[in-house]
Amino acid sequence: MEQRHPLPPFTLETALQKVQLAEDAWNSKDPERVSLAYTVDTEWRNRDQFINGRTEVVAFLAGKWEKELDYKLKKELWSYTDNRISVRFEYEWHDKDGQWYRSYGNEQWEFDTNGLMQRRFASINDLPIDSGYRKFL
């Protein structure tokens, strides 16, 4: 049986650990690695896209990081309870033409008893920025 520690129910300490593990995995920009934190049948809403299952997660992330170059993410715990965690985040990236963006958003996560994320709902907005205004160098 697959498990991904820490397991719910979450405490402040374990919720913070889960957020840091997610940040580290996403900053690896490795779709396969990231997908292992999710259930096989995970459900996502990412912006206006609906993604179902690890296979779709891997394809989505591969496409994301082909477009969002030099991606760097920071997540912050917003709240937690039992098997749910909410985070706010921001990340920076540039497109193939060199235009930099800062993306802001919120995610709601729901975990199964084995600590795998079964649901992820993300709302995200992009802001074009001048490279001189980057936070994450």
Score class of each variant (00 low, 15 high):
3 Q>S: 09
3 Q>Y: 10
13 E>L: 13
16 L>T: 13
17 Q>G: 02
17 Q>F: 00
21 L>H: 07
24 D>R: 03
25 A>C: 01
27 N>F: 04
28 S>L: 11
29 K>C: 11
30 D>W: 07
32 E>W: 12
35 S>D: 09
38 Y>R: 07
39 T>G: 00
40 V>F: 03
40 V>Y: 04
43 E>F: 04
44 W>V: 06
47 R>T: 07
48 D>M: 06
48 D>W: 05
48 D>Y: 03
49 Q>W: 02
49 Q>G: 03
49 Q>V: 01
54 R>M: 06
55 T>W: 02
55 T>H: 07
56 E>D: 14
56 E>W: 00
58 V>S: 01
61 L>I: 05
63 G>F: 10
63 G>N: 14
65 W>M: 07
66 E>D: 12
71 Y>A: 12
73 L>N: 09
73 L>F: 08
80 Y>G: 00
80 Y>L: 08
81 T>N: 09
82 D>T: 06
82 D>G: 01
82 D>P: 01
83 N>V: 03
84 R>H: 06
85 I>M: 09
89 F>C: 04
90 E>Q: 12
91 Y>C: 15
92 E>M: 05
94 H>D: 00
95 D>Q: 08
96 K>H: 10
96 K>Q: 10
99 Q>L: 04
100 W>V: 13
100 W>D: 12
101 Y>N: 01
103 S>Q: 09
104 Y>M: 08
105 G>W: 09
108 Q>A: 14
110 E>V: 04
111 F>Y: 10
114 N>K: 05
114 N>D: 12
116 L>R: 09
116 L>D: 05
117 M>E: 11
117 M>Y: 03
118 Q>N: 08
121 F>D: 02
123 S>E: 14
123 S>Y: 14
126 D>E: 15
126 D>T: 02
127 L>Q: 14
127 L>A: 04
130 D>W: 03
131 S>F: 08
133 Y>T: 05
135 K>G: 04
137 L>A: 14
